[in-house]
């Protein structure tokens, strides 16, 4: 619908919208994050949800203790190799449509612990991540920005186009294989279905 016509109608007290917009407006403004933290980023996440930064303004203040009631996973902190299977299992248990924010350097890439023997080099090796927040740890404003970015992306998910939400796309699985503890590393060490980094070639 032409935006000019819509604002003209609004001036006469007639409000016009589409079902799709209404649906996405509702979804993007009632994100329920899963309440779990893995490291110091969790402190910033808690600060973001409290009165000073007030994540409630974006409809995302209801941190749920159960993955069955949550649709947003904020991976806040270092994912150790011992914790990674549990994080993937929590993701699998969440209800569709579900979204993931990787918060902080550790959740993105392993961060300062990248060379450690026990730290997963980014949660996007096992589950699809929608928004990455850099920072160590990111400030609450950064988390709010990530949430707003995610809301924008949800609002753009047209229901009939190829960009429709995950749960309407048959090619997007709702569950991903949970890695197992192997003798030297997690088995498999990554999920190539999910994690497709660009191949970098550089002169030796």
């Amino acid at each position: 619908m032409d935006p000019g016509l819509r604002s003209e109608l609004q001036r006469h007290g007639i409000f016009v919208t589409t079902l799709e917009q209404l649906y996405n407006w509702g979804r993007s403004n009632s994100l329920w994050p899963l309440g779990f933290g893995l490291a110091c980023c969790a402190i910033e996440m808690i600060a973001a949800s409290m009165a000073r930064y007030d994540l409630a303004r974006f409809g995302a203040e209801v941190f749920r203790p159960s993955p069955r009631q949550a649709d947003l996973m904020i991976v806040a902190g270092t994912v150790t190799k011992k914790m990674a299977p549990q994080v993937v299992r929590l993701y699998n248990q969440m209800a569709e449509p579900k979204y993931v924010i990787a918060m902080g350097a550790c959740a993105i890439s392993g961060g300062p612990f990248k060379q450690g023997y026990n730290v997963l080099k980014g949660i996007d090796r096992y589950i699809p991540v929608d928004v990455h927040i850099p920072g160590c740890p990111p400030r609450p404003e950064a988390l709010i920005h990530a949430l707003m970015t995610l809301q924008q992306r949800i609002a753009e998910e047209s229901l009939l186009s190829p960009k429709r939400p995950r749960h309407l796309r048959p090619d997007q699985p709702g569950e991903y294989p949970v890695p197992e503890f192997g003798p030297h590393d997690l088995v498999p060490p990554k999920n190539p279905e999910v994690w497709k980094p660009p191949i970098l070639r550089r002169p030796a």
Binding site: Y117, K121, F181, P183, H184, K190
Partner: peptide
């Protein structure tokens, strides 16, 4: 700290870490 099935001792100087430096 590590899981029960883990076989190495990571703080030993001859520990060989898994090669996951793809990206």
């Amino acid at each position: 700290l590590m899981w029960d099935g883990f076989q190495d001792h990571p703080m030993r100087k001859d520990y060989v870490e898994p090669d996951d430096y793809e990206y």
